[in-house]
């Protein structure tokens, strides 16, 4: 198994950009709350999904559908319908988080490949092997909280392929186990497919500076010489014991370009690029750099370096123009 490059597609132009620039797989969601990027104006209806799947598969690429929110009892049929539609459309795999959907999909479509979403919060091989034994999960996407040594221990103890986040927005919390967003706004990734939803965001210019609020709660205040980023709840500045700082995480992006040889050595199956909410231009630039980097590392891992040019190109599209290796690098914790 080689290291696959898995790229985000928030819409058809982004999907084409990913395919044209060397993605091995693209992942997308339907236009409702069955996926964790349920933003207005984003995602695919039946017709664009059909076109996107054709475009990718005709060029030998795979298409993955994210159905990674948690259905509640009364709405469960909406998710079941999405699974049926995906099977009909002929996606390469489903990315699921909820066990009831895994059971339905594995019983109804035994030949349809299933991936465990990062929203399934599996950080250890006992959890991953549970999903494998009961529902035949073939790949798991790990939350962005493990060090490389911990990731390697997972790989060694499971038959399930492991996919890692390589680049993009950084969740500082275990995905699927963070309800900060619903605490502030009533909607979370688990329930509504959104984090810090745009409809709850208010920007306000005040004498103290530009303020960002989420459902009225002050997340940050910027002076005129500071760049204001999207007000994600965990990336605001707060006060703890009279010190004001980024108490949870800075507005920064994950970038693991320099770790590719290590991932190859460990037997990682795929690298995921975050950002279905980002533009086709973002997808094009990030896919192109990662394609080149993965190819270079596969050709000659010993002499591989993440070139300054690549890093600069990724830097331009990073949140807050900052990078981190996140939890893969232990001191981050």
């Amino acid at each position: 198994m080689s290291l696959e490059l898995v790229c985000p597609a928030g819409n058809l132009p982004a999907l084409k950009a990913a395919v044209d620039n060397g993605a091995d797989c693209v992942y997308f969601g339907f236009r409702n709350n069955t996926n964790a990027r349920a933003f207005s104006g984003l995602n695919f209806d039946a017709e664009t999904a059909k076109q996107g799947i054709s475009y990718a598969t005709e060029r030998g690429r795979k298409v993955l559908l994210a159905l990674n929110t948690f259905p509640q009892t009364a709405e469960w049929h909406t998710w079941r319908q999405a699974i049926d539609d995906a099977a009909e459309l002929g996606v390469s795999a489903l990315i699921l988080a909820d066990v009831s959907l895994m059971r339905y999909a594995s019983r109804t479509y035994p030949n349809l490949r299933l991936h465990l979403s990062v929203q399934g919060s599996a950080t250890n091989y006992e959890a991953i092997n549970f999903y494998h034994e009961h529902f035949g999960i073939q790949r798991a996407v790990l939350p962005r909280v493990l060090s490389l040594a911990q990731v390697e221990n997972v790989v060694k103890n499971t038959p399930v392929e492991i996919e890692l986040f390589g680049f993009g927005g950084l969740c500082v919390m275990v995905e699927g186990r963070c309800i900060l967003s619903s605490y502030a706004t009533g909607e979370s990734p688990n329930t509504a497919g959104v984090c810090s939803p745009a409809k709850a965001v208010r920007w306000q210019q005040t004498s103290a500076g530009l303020e960002s609020r989420l459902n009225g709660i002050l997340l940050d205040r910027y002076s005129s010489d500071e760049n204001a980023g999207y007000p994600t709840l965990c990336k605001g500045r707060f006060e703890v014991e009279d010190e004001t700082y980024y108490a949870l995480e800075e507005p920064t992006s994950l970038n693991t370009l320099e770790l590719i040889p290590e991932m190859l050595r460990m037997g990682i199956s795929a690298i995921k690029i975050e950002g279905r909410q980002r533009s086709p231009v973002y997808v094009e630039q990030v896919t192109r750099v990662w394609r080149a980097a993965i190819d270079a590392a596969k050709k000659d891992a010993a002499h591989y370096v993440a070139t300054p040019d690549w890093m600069a190109q990724l830097g331009k599209v990073s949140e807050g123009q900052q990078h981190t290796l996140g939890a893969y690098y232990r001191p981050w914790k």
């Binding site: 909280v145 493990l146 060090s147 500082v172 919390m173 275990v174 186990r177 963070c178 309800i179 900060l180 605490y183 965990c234 703890v240 014991e241 010190e243 108490a247 949870l248 995480e249 939890a327 001191p331 981050w332 914790k333």
Partner: peptide
């Protein structure tokens, strides 16, 4: 509300986890 591998208490005191 949330779990992380990062320790936010240690972070407040600029200590490694």
């Amino acid at each position: 509300l949330a779990f992380s591998s990062r320790c936010f208490t240690a972070r407040r005191y600029n200590l490694p986890k």
